[in-house]
Design a protein around this nucleic acid. Structure first.
Lengths: 139, 139
DNA sequence: TTTAGCTGTAATGTCAACGGTTACATAAAA
DNA sequence: TTTTATGTAACCGTTGACATTACAGCTAAA
């Protein structure tokens, strides 16, 4: 069970746009050749990032452009933009038996801890910005 | 993308064994009726927990018994016992283009942050023991 | 205003994992 | 030896991921 590669593809895509966008026209074909996936996969990624207000995409003429400062984009923003996780990260078995003292209380006992764990993950993602990554790239 | 319900099923199973085990014989059928899943699902869970040294299971005569103190079992132990995540939590697109400055460095730039996020999640799970949960149950 | 180039998206296919279930061999205790 | 349970293999249906083809629609430039 892994978090979809849409996430790392989206990060890669944004890095390309923010770092190479002044030199090249960032078309889905161009980005696809860097990420090494089908251009349609990149178009879907661009579509999600655009919907999240992170980039602008020019239909027709082509090319993706930054819509926000790299300092203002966290990994968490990207993670939510591409829908890595739908709500709760942990799947819970449905309909535990309410006649059983354990089944009746399992949610009360466990939910908060699962939320805490998920929050810890997401907070870590919130602590890293795209600008942090572009700096490390040194291009 | 969610983490398999095997995890919450395993937690539920252990709570039942540790809290009700002195009153009832904890067979897969009994536990299955509390969790509300097929008994075979519970037997698979018991098998994983047994392999992890968390419980003992009596073949033939039947019934599962604690093999460790509840204080010494963390949610992380359970999480690893049932193989929620195989190695890395984040899936990474394969073969980014080494000819591209972004593709060449994407792993160097991103890997540590993804590891940090995963570690944050897992550390949170390590901070909760089964004993914490049984206390909250108040049975 | 036509056309070349690109985006947007629907449709289809493959594959793996999950979860459910049946079936049955095996083990242990009465 | 009969009863009761575990241990597993086998199979199925569903879901989501990812890849790919196809094509409609848009836009800028010729």
């Amino acid at each position: 069970m892994k978090i979809t590669s849409r996430f790392t593809i989206a990060v890669h895509t944004l890095l390309a746009i923010y770092v190479l966008g002044n030199k090249y026209k960032m078309t889905s074909d161009f980005i696809a050749s860097s990420v090494n996936v089908n251009p349609v996969v990149i178009r879907r990624t661009l579509s999600s990032l655009k919907a999240a207000g992170i980039i602008d995409v020019k239909a027709g003429s082509g090319g993706a452009l930054p819509a926000k400062d790299a300092e203002d984009i966290t990994l968490y923003d990207i993670y939510t933009a591409v829908d890595c996780v739908d709500g709760d990260l942990f799947n819970f078995h449905e309909n535990p038996n309410p006649e059983c003292p354990v089944g009746k209380n399992i949610h009360a006992v466990l939910d908060s801890h699962l939320s805490d764990a998920q929050a810890a993950l997401e907070n870590e993602l919130k602590s890293v910005t795209l600008a942090d990554l572009t700096e490390q790239l040194n291009i």
